[in-house]
């Protein structure tokens, strides 16, 4: 990749101009408006909006639900990855391909499906109802939707690392008398930890901003099952643009922090891999 001679390749001016112009118009100017608009608010107003009870409840819910869903995804995503990489069973290739479904399926479609399945009259909702478990129109439903959305992030982050993990160390451990569980805990798990963490962070970050799959199953009861992105839309529908902007600025800040964290984990994990 290193250029020995500069500017031998043509088209620098043209592509640079295109990129900067398009990036500026579509991404940078719009994003800067949100910070400029929030700067137009007084600090008291801004603070009062983002610390109101309803907004705090929404932040807390979005955060907790994303965290829980990411946790479930790390555990089950890992088992799925393990089975896909290490075991052979019929339909493995098909299932491997289907893991990307949540990337390809429109979130609204996922939303109406999950809402129907877990509703009181639905396939699973009907089974869970007698047990006293209420999933749809409840916080549990939000976690379910976010598990669906986050699953491929964990699987696709861990899968290549597991595929390239040399089994010679495992063989060595077994030869030296380690049980399978010891080998897993002492040899395999430490190697996969960075990838698992990265997968967790990606699924978590995606969950924080997710909207389409959640709103159908959440029931959207203020203070109880109302996520932060929905609250932005509610404020907009009340023509309270400053309120929506304030909530959005906090969420944007949170996702930039997540981005930074993900990059740090990723750098750490690539260093980890090079050893």
């Amino acid at each position: 990749m290193a250029r020995k001679r500069k500017r031998v390749m043509p088209g620098f001016g043209l592509t640079f101009g295109c990129c900067v112009l398009y990036l500026g118009l579509i991404v940078l100017i719009p994003i800067s408006t949100i910070f400029a608009s929030s700067a137009g608010m007084t600090w008291e107003n801004f603070w009062a909006t983002i610390t109101s009870r309803r907004v705090m409840a929404a932040y807390k819910l979005s955060f907790m639900a994303s965290f829980l869903a990411a946790l479930v995804n790390v555990v089950f995503g890992f088992i799925v990855t393990w089975a896909l990489v290490r075991y052979r069973f019929p339909g493995r290739k098909l299932i491997d391909a289907m893991v990307d479904l949540p990337f390809a399926l429109p979130t609204a479609v996922a939303g109406i499906c999950l809402a129907t399945i877990y509703a009181r009259t639905g396939w699973l909702g009907g089974l869970l109802e007698p047990l006293g478990i209420k999933v749809a129109y409840n916080q549990a439903g939000i976690v379910i939707a976010l598990i669906f959305i986050g699953l491929p992030f964990v699987v696709r982050t861990v899968q290549p690392v597991l595929e390239d993990l040399g089994q010679d160390v495992e063989d060595a451990a077994a030869c030296l008398g380690a049980s399978r569980w010891q080998t897993f805990r002492r040899i395999i798990l430490p190697e996969l930890t960075p990838a698992l963490l990265a997968g967790f962070a990606l699924a978590f970050a995606r969950g924080l901003g997710e909207y389409g799959s959640v709103i159908f199953i959440a029931g959207n009861i203020p203070m109880k099952s109302e996520i932060a992105p929905l609250l932005i839309i509610t404020k907009l529908e009340e023509y309270n643009t400053p309120g929506a902007t304030a909530i959005a600025v906090v969420m944007l800040a949170a996702s930039f922090i997540m981005l930074f964290a993900i990059n740090t984990i990723q750098r750490w994990s690539s260093r980890h891999m090079e050893r």
């Binding site: 100017i29 719009p30 970050a205 932005i232 929506a244 902007t245």
Partner: peptide, 17 residues
């Protein structure tokens, strides 16, 4: 950058603009 922005916020950006 657009990957890190929640879709709802992406919509809001253009309302503000």
């Amino acid at each position: 950058l657009p990957f890190t922005v929640s879709p709802v916020i992406a919509g809001l950006l253009f309302i503000l603009l």
